[in-house]
Amino acid sequence: MLAQQIVNGLTIGMIYALIALGYTMVYGILKIVNFAHGDIFMMGSFFGLILIRNVGLPFVVAFALAAVLTALLGILIERLAYRRLRFSDRIVPLISAMGVSIFLANLAQKLWGSEVHTFPKVMEIKTYTIAGMTFSTVQLLIFGLSIIAMLGLHFFVNKTKIGTAMRATSISITNATLMGINTNMIIMITFAIGSALAAAAGILVSIYYDAVYPTMGYTAGLKAFTAAVLGGIGSIPGAVLGGLILGVAENLGIAYIAAKYQDIIAFCILILVLIIRPRGILGKKEINKV
């Protein structure tokens, strides 16, 4: 029972982690919380749904294309809603982010209706029992793809030239510019990667819960933000760790306290982290205003 709850918690934790990565990467570079990120995740999910259900593309192609489209959406949002505010007081891009969030949720509702869509069947759902724990094929898909995405990101950020430039930009945009790095390009790449990961999370969770709807980004976005803060916002390993811890904590709460407390657990964690250790588990010490 306990082991099974942990497995289920890790599954949803992977989803939180994938979304949290986008929050943390953008924060790492621009020091802004992209509150539209939950809605980017929702849009990714809809892109996947439309490409499979309406366009009829095979799952793998639709998955990749949805990630690309969502990446472009992320780039567009940075260009339109954040770039001009880069040197404003930090509360200003925050307001802009909320505006984008409201806009996207309403756009989705206008385009696709407010009802809950079911997700087309993309694979044979089987379950496997290993050492008393049950895994479904969807869970295995979530684990597999999430781990591949995280390892890929880790390699990109730490081992490639652009990844190194990205880390430099997150330390100092000015000094990175002095290296000849086109920091606007780096910021675009950051938004693109974060958004593509959110799209992956969106499609995976839609398959898992069999539901796509315009407001799905709201709670998921806040939870992933909690995960990013818990792990230490700005830290990539922190986002993954925070996501997994949050997913497990939520599932244990559902199992041992009551299912209706699921959301309360996440936000209690957020409040506790902010009071006890605002920099999170792996975050660096710094003085923050927002």
Partner: peptide, 30 residues
């Protein structure tokens, strides 16, 4: 500004501007 570096001007900024979380080698590679 980043194009100016491509044209052949490099600056050692005030306060040195090394990237503290990056290794010495990574700084040089940048």
């Amino acid at each position: 500004p980043h194009q100016i570096v491509h044209m052949g001007i490099s600056q050692v900024p005030e306060g040195r501007g090394v990237f503290p979380d990056l290794t010495v080698l990574e700084n040089l590679q940048l």
